[in-house]
């Protein structure tokens, strides 16, 4: 039980928060940190249980994407089309970064990714680099989109 809570707190919450930060960066919207954290917490808890229930990666991502869109719509007060675009793009980019991060670190260190399930600190280390990359990407996207909207 303690392990589950730690997993939600240390992995699912930050994951949810950066996904919504990324989604709102696409819209160059003013960031309301409280809302992002709230959306991230709800998404993190729900995503954890969806993963546990479905047991399938594809189904898990479909459900998570729909959940992200719903949260953006109702907690972010954003038009549905923008929610769909931002939600899908952020999940898609997050997954692409996740894939790159894992394959790059696997190639670099030669560690078998299945070992991550057993070694908590190693998993944390790999996860942090991924979160860091997504945040950097969000900053770049936000800077680019804000500049474009100011120019227009």
């Amino acid at each position: 039980m303690g392990e589950k809570i730690a997993e939600i707190l240390l992995f699912s919450f930050p994951e949810g928060i950066v996904i919504f930060y990324l989604a709102l960066s696409f819209m160059a919207k003013k960031i309301n940190l409280i809302r992002i954290v709230a959306m991230g917490i709800i998404f993190g808890i729900a995503a954890y249980f969806i993963r546990e229930t479905t047991g399938s990666f594809v189904l898990n991502i479909f459900c998570a994407t729909i959940l992200a869109i719903i949260l953006l719509k109702y907690l972010g007060s954003i038009p549905i089309f923008d929610c769909a675009i931002a939600g899908i793009m952020s999940i898609s980019l997050y997954l692409a970064v996740e894939f790159l991060n894992v394959t790059f670190l696997q190639t670099l260190t030669g560690i078998d990714p299945t070992r991550l399930q057993e070694n908590f600190s190693l998993r944390m280390l790999w996860f942090l680099s991924q979160i860091f990359m997504v945040i950097i990407l969000s900053f770049i996207i936000r800077y680019f989109f804000s500049r474009r909207s100011t120019e227009s």
């Binding site: 993963r51 479905t54 991502i61 994407t65 675009i85 898609s92 997954l95 692409a96 894939f99």
Partner: peptide
């Protein structure tokens, strides 16, 4: 078109990640 191509990009990444996870039998029903 925007929605359509974004869904397509999600599907491509999903396929990529799913194949990778399949190699390690992770999260496969």
């Amino acid at each position: 078109a925007i929605l359509f191509f974004i869904i397509q990009s999600l599907l491509i990444v999903l396929l990529l990640n799913n194949n990778y996870m399949d190699r390690f039998s992770f999260l496969q029903s």
